[in-house]
Nucleic acid binder design. Structure first.
Length: 152
DNA sequence: GCCAACGTTGGC
DNA sequence: GCCAACGTTGGC
């Protein structure tokens, strides 16, 4: 089992939006970065767990936990001209972009702010605390996962 | 294949 | 809203 951190802007799609879905499950659409696509497509497995992270907000940080419940399949928003994720270069016969389905597991008892993560010597190597990290999905080691939960 | 220009991300 | 970081695009 692997661990991940998945970023989303709460103004666009926050953890409360996921909780409001039927089965508290939704697809993670809109990934338009090749590195992230490759991780999602090649490495993410059903049963993996991920931190749900709120970015671009007053207090960015980890707010909850989700689980991968469906492995990568084509991101159909790439073919929808009405979607803001529309990509005319994605050929339905050879999909360029992929998404997974995630299910809400729980909220953390409190938000663990990016600032706090940065203060932890044990988390120096965590991708999300590194300068200039713009990937919306990053891997988390088991040690990092446990450490974050210990801060809750 | 280089690289400047441009666009996006996301913390602050 | 600013701007640093960095990915993508496209001319050459």
């Amino acid at each position: 089992m692997q661990y991940w951190l998945m970023k989303s802007e709460p103004d666009v799609y926050g953890i409360d939006d996921l909780m409001a879905q039927p089965d508290q499950t939704d697809h993670w659409d809109g990934v338009r970065n090749y590195q992230v696509r490759n991780m999602m497509r090649d490495q993410m497995k059903v049963g993996d767990q991920a931190f749900f992270y709120h970015s671009n907000t007053k207090v960015p940080g980890i707010v909850g936990i989700v689980e991968i419940v469906r492995e990568a399949y084509p991101d159909f928003t790439a073919w929808d001209p009405e979607s803001k994720y529309y990509d005319p270069k994605s050929d339905p016969d050879k999909p360029r972009w992929f998404m997974v389905d995630v299910r809400f597991v729980r909220k953390l008892r409190r938000v663990i702010a990016l600032q706090e993560l940065r203060e932890q010597p044990e988390l120096q190597d965590m991708k999300v605390v590194q300068k200039g990290c713009r990937l919306s999905i990053t891997p988390v080691t088991e040690a990092q996962w446990r450490h974050v939960l210990g801060m809750e």
